Simulated scan of single mutants.
Amino acid sequence: MPNNNQVLFVKTPSASSIKGNMFLYERKNEKQSWKLADSFPVTVGRSGLAKDAHSVIPLNDNLPVKQEGDGKSPSGIFKLWKVFSYHNLQNLKMPFVQVDTNFYCVDDVNSRYYNQLILADTAIKDFNSFEHMKLSSNGYEYGVWVLYNSNPAIAGNGSCIFLHVWRDENTPTSGCTAMAKENMLKLIHWLDEKKNPVLLQVVEE
């Protein structure tokens, strides 16, 4: 894509695979060639991948369309938003928010806050389901918000899609893309807002 000089390229061997690999590519500008900065294994949704209904790139017609609660990670190309963490991180080149137990991501399709990051104590409670952004585990200790189904968020198309720390290499997610903590840390310090990073996620076949 024009003006995107960092790409997080994820590919899985099949539509139902829960494992894949992420390749970090970077270039100085559109006239320069892409260079591989790093690569490492990832896990995706427990039901594999499903395509973004509004994808701007061609995807396999046999892939199901991503829906709320399907346990699938979205396939397509997506901008990235804020890095988030339980800790106050310094020296990042991305927008950042330190999350605590007051931060929710709403996944209730009937809520005005669907697929939004909110502060629980200031929101009008019109939702019955949400994700805590600070978990009892280290899953969201470090993460990146993926701008899937955003601007506008279409009810039912899927919500709360992140890059985050995995439980282990054999445990899938509910629809996010996860990796080892050490790789998550490398990723968030590599990302640069000025390079307009995007996540490109596809099935290899």
Rank of each mutant, 00 (worst) to 15 (best):
Y114M: 01
S55G: 09
Y86E: 03
H189T: 04
A153S: 10
A153T: 04
L89I: 11
I161Q: 06
V83E: 00
Y142N: 02
K66D: 02
P2N: 15
S14E: 08
V146C: 09
K82V: 06
G20L: 06
H87E: 15
P41F: 10
A50E: 04
N128P: 00
K79N: 14
V165M: 03
L59I: 06
A37Q: 10
N115P: 06
F130M: 01
D108F: 00
A180M: 07
P13C: 10
V146Y: 07
N102Y: 12
A15K: 13
L117K: 11
A37I: 09
S137M: 07
L191E: 02
E141D: 14
P172R: 07
D38N: 09
T43L: 12
V42T: 10
H132T: 09
S39I: 14
L117Q: 13
L63C: 05
P58G: 07
I124G: 04
K66R: 12
C160L: 06
T122M: 06
S14R: 05
F78S: 00
L63M: 10
N196S: 12
M94V: 03
E182K: 14
F103S: 15
V109Y: 03
N91K: 10
I77E: 08
Y25R: 14
P74V: 04
L36E: 13
N170I: 12
G76Q: 05
K195F: 00
M1G: 10
T12Y: 08
E68M: 06
Y148P: 03
P74M: 09
V106H: 04
R167M: 02
I77N: 06
D61F: 06
W81A: 15
G76W: 00
K35H: 13
G71C: 04
R112K: 15
F130C: 00
Q201A: 14
L185K: 10
S39D: 15
W190N: 08
S33E: 15
I57K: 05
I161A: 04
E68Q: 05
P74H: 08
S85M: 05
Y140F: 11
Q90G: 12
I161L: 11
F40E: 03
S73Y: 03
Q116N: 07
C160P: 08
T173M: 02
I188T: 02
D100E: 02
M94R: 00
S150M: 14
P2F: 15
L163F: 13
